[in-house]
Simulated assay, not measured.
Amino acid sequence: MKYFSIAPSEKLAGLVRCFWVLEMESFSGAPYIHRTMADGCIEMVFHYQGIFDELLNNEQQATSFSSGISGPSQQFKRFSIDQHFGIFGVYLYPFALAELFGIPALALTNEMIDTGTILGTAGKELEEKMMLARDNQHRIAIITQFLESRLTRRKIKYHAISETIRQIISTDGMSNVQRLADDSFLSMRQFQRNFKEHTGFSPKLFTRIARFQAALQKYPEKESLSLTDIAYDCGYYDQSHFIHDFKEFSGHHPGAYFSGKAEGTKWITV
Results as ranks from 00 to 15, higher is better:
111 E>F: 08
170 S>F: 00
137 Q>G: 12
153 R>Q: 15
75 Q>M: 06
121 T>L: 14
82 D>A: 15
71 G>C: 05
142 I>E: 02
124 K>F: 04
151 L>V: 02
115 T>H: 06
153 R>S: 11
132 L>R: 14
152 T>M: 14
116 G>F: 04
158 Y>H: 12
99 E>C: 06
146 F>V: 03
102 G>T: 01
173 G>P: 00
153 R>L: 10
155 K>P: 04
132 L>T: 10
119 L>T: 09
137 Q>M: 11
89 G>S: 07
133 A>Q: 03
161 I>L: 09
130 M>F: 01
162 S>N: 14
142 I>D: 06
118 I>E: 11
139 R>W: 01
142 I>S: 03
76 F>Y: 13
123 G>P: 08
125 E>L: 08
133 A>S: 10
140 I>C: 06
133 A>I: 00
120 G>S: 10
80 S>L: 08
133 A>F: 00
81 I>V: 13
110 N>G: 02
169 I>A: 09
90 V>Y: 09
162 S>M: 12
111 E>P: 08
144 T>V: 01
116 G>A: 09
91 Y>V: 03
131 M>G: 01
128 E>H: 04
98 A>R: 14
121 T>F: 08
145 Q>W: 09
139 R>Y: 07
119 L>W: 07
152 T>E: 15
143 I>F: 11
157 K>G: 08
127 E>N: 04
135 D>R: 04
98 A>K: 12
114 D>T: 09
164 T>G: 01
90 V>M: 06
102 G>C: 15
111 E>Y: 05
96 A>V: 06
73 S>M: 09
122 A>T: 14
133 A>K: 00
129 K>E: 11
109 T>Y: 00
139 R>H: 00
114 D>G: 08
169 I>D: 06
99 E>D: 15
174 M>E: 05
122 A>V: 11
